[in-house]
């Protein structure tokens, strides 16, 4: 049995300047706020962040943006974070937008050891500009490359010490895909249990895709329900 439980500082200290870091979450659910907070403290710079969204102002990824640690965002939508939009418009960061399901498939392709995917999604839009377009089986397709990352930060409801992971409700979202796409996967969990305590039939992300498991010391305010 391989025990992967790790201290949060030791785990995040592995991330160097210039790394590509996948981050789970769609809005609040599934965002690893605890690991992100430590990444801000650690201070690695020139990061490329791959995430569905940029959270909201003052939350999650926004702390990295405000701290000047982000060079590029690879996302689908940043409409809830006015700070991210401002930084994009003022060219302080580079932003690459992907159709949501195509971002998921590009990550999955990397995670499945594939060279890319063929799709007609977005072929009539400005998002196709500059991309390789081929005719396959009589139809025009965009060649979308895989997105491979150095690190992934994911959030689990519960994990065992060997790195088997379960998510809760819509906190699953991009987390399993981010885990597949990265060379080194750091998983924060609300609860870490001994191996054997999770039903092997009910694992969402199996341990071979997880390198370090960190138990969240205390759920911060950011995990709570947002009252708008």
């Amino acid at each position: 049995m391989i025990i992967k439980q790790s201290d949060v500082r030791e785990a995040i200290a592995r991330i160097p300047d210039g790394a590509t870091v996948c981050v789970g979450g769609f809005g609040v659910p599934g965002t690893p706020f605890y690991l992100l907070q430590e990444l801000v403290r650690h201070g690695a710079k020139d990061l490329t962040i791959v995430k569905n969204d940029a959270n909201e102002r003052g939350m999650g990824v926004d702390h990295l943006l405000k701290n000047g640690q982000v060079k590029k965002l690879i996302v689908t939508h940043i409409g809830l974070n006015a700070n991210a939009i401002r930084m994009m418009n003022e060219a302080e960061i580079e932003v690459e937008f992907n159709p949501q399901g195509i971002l998921a498939e590009k990550l999955r392709a990397a995670g499945a050891g594939l060279q890319g995917i063929l799709t007609d999604v977005g072929i009539d839009t400005t998002l196709a500009e500059g991309k390789t377009i081929i005719t396959y089986d009589g139809r025009q397709c965009i060649v979308e490359p895989p997105i491979k990352a150095d690190f992934a930060l994911i959030h689990a409801a519960i994990a065992d010490q060997t790195g088997n992971v379960r998510y809760s409700a819509t906190a699953q979202n991009f987390n399993p895909l981010m885990a597949m796409a990265a060379d080194c996967v750091i998983c924060e969990a609300e609860q870490v249990v001994e191996a054997g305590r999770l039903d092997a039939d009910l694992i969402h992300t199996p341990s071979p895709f997880v390198d370090h498991v960190v138990e969240i010391a205390e759920l911060s305010e950011e995990y709570n329900v947002i009252r708008r």
Partner: peptide, 14 residues
């Protein structure tokens, strides 16, 4: 208004 595409393309196209 440049928030990004989200899932709109796939829903509309497919």
């Amino acid at each position: 208004f440049t928030p990004g595409i989200g899932g709109a393309i796939e829903l509309a196209q497919k």
